[in-house]
Design a protein around this nucleic acid. Structure first.
Length: 300
RNA sequence: GCGGCGGUGGUAGAGUGGUCAAUUACAAGAGACUGUAAAUCUCUCGGCCUUGCGCCUACGUAGGUUCGAAUCCUACCCGCCGCA
């Protein structure tokens, strides 16, 4: 790795693997601060269902167990938050932490966010055009695919002809920039030297934890939170489509909702796992001590 | 006890003589991902292998009819409903 780059410690793992508590422990030990890589905890007001750490804002910083957490409780629920924005914010924060003489920890379970920051993806800065998206959404997928093929054949190869969203995004970027989508997807030079620590967890233990965690959410007032948020914002905003929230939309039986949430959370951890499996740079650990040792040798 | 209806793969639920290992949905498993990513999408999904339009076992159980049955007949078992 390039020694001139700032060092970032990444703690990742699937949902409920215990990232937060490990990260806090390590941050205390290594004089660190935490940047969250969680696509849901970043939203304000979405607390119980996202398992947001129960911290508090002090002097403009979100503090949990004495450690500053950035990019938690940061964005308004109605904002159109994008990957590109996340990348920019997270990169800035990490650099800021370094310049304060502290150790930056990037902690989270949203694989795309982690990658975009650590690998410094060059993401087209095209904001979502909701009107265009809605309009294209009405059309037949093959029609959209053919349109893309005509405008940018390479992009059509990338998106394939099955995933409507990806096709629409490509068309959106082309429409907004006037340039080919395929020319705009590049990976930049890394800006950080990073260690990726992954928390390993057995399947059996995972099921147990997710079941407990879900029950705990109900005890902490999940149903009330959702009632309030759905009345305030409706069901269409992005954070409302999170696991733990969407299940309330068409169902009122709380037991059914609970088991649905557990089921969907487990399915989600599988998607996370698929992503992490591909990443050969992750150092998998099973205990805090192991993590501590890896970090020590990384920082030296 | 009599009469009616029904018992199909992990679940729900189609199929009512051949093209049925059985539509579909869900669950499950594997995978994709430069985008909204806790999103969205793809493939597999009875067993076996030499992966063939191959073999075996399967539509409550046991027989039967038929060249051929998840589909028709008989008996039995189980469930629901009605009458006793």
């Amino acid at each position: 790795m390039n020694p001139s780059l700032s060092r970032v410690i990444t703690i990742l793992g699937i949902t409920s693997s215990g990232k937060t508590s490990l990260a806090v422990e390590l941050a205390k030990e290594f004089n660190g601060e935490i940047v969250s890589a969680d696509s849901r905890q970043i939203y304000k007001e979405f607390n119980v269902g996202t398992a947001k750490p129960e911290g508090a804002w002090e002097n403009g910083k979100f503090i949990y167990k004495g450690i500053a957490h950035y990019l938690i409780d940061e964005i308004d629920p109605t904002d159109d938050f994008t990957l590109s924005q996340y990348q920019k914010l997270a990169t800035e924060k990490l650099k800021e932490i370094v310049s304060c003489g502290k150790t930056p920890f990037l902690v989270g379970g949203t694989p795309l966010y982690l990658k975009a920051v650590l690998e410094n993806w060059n993401i087209p800065e095209v904001k979502p055009n909701l009107r265009l998206r809605q309009e294209l959404e009405q059309k037949d997928i093959l029609e959209l695919f053919n349109a893309l093929k005509e405008k940018d054949p390479e992009a059509a190869l990338i998106t394939g002809n099955a995933n409507k969203r990806r096709i629409i995004r490509a068309l959106e970027v082309i429409a907004e920039t006037g340039e080919k989508f395929s020319n705009q997807r590049k990976i930049g030079e890394p800006v950080f030297d990073y260690l990726k620590i992954g928390i390993k967890i057995e399947k059996e233990e995972l099921v147990k934890r997710i079941t407990e965690r879900t029950k705990e959410m109900f005890k902490k007032g999940l149903a009330e939170e959702i009632k309030q948020l759905s009345e305030k914002y409706g069901w269409e905003i992005t954070p409302m489509q999170s696991i733990g929230y969407q299940e309330f939309k068409d169902e009122t039986n709380l037991d059914k909702i609970e088991s649905l949430i557990i089921q969907n959370t487990l399915a989600y951890t599988k998607r996370q796992t698929t992503w992490f499996k591909k990443d050969k740079n992750i150092v998998w650990i099973t205990s805090p001590k192991e993590a501590e040792e890896k970090i020590k040798s990384f920082l030296n």
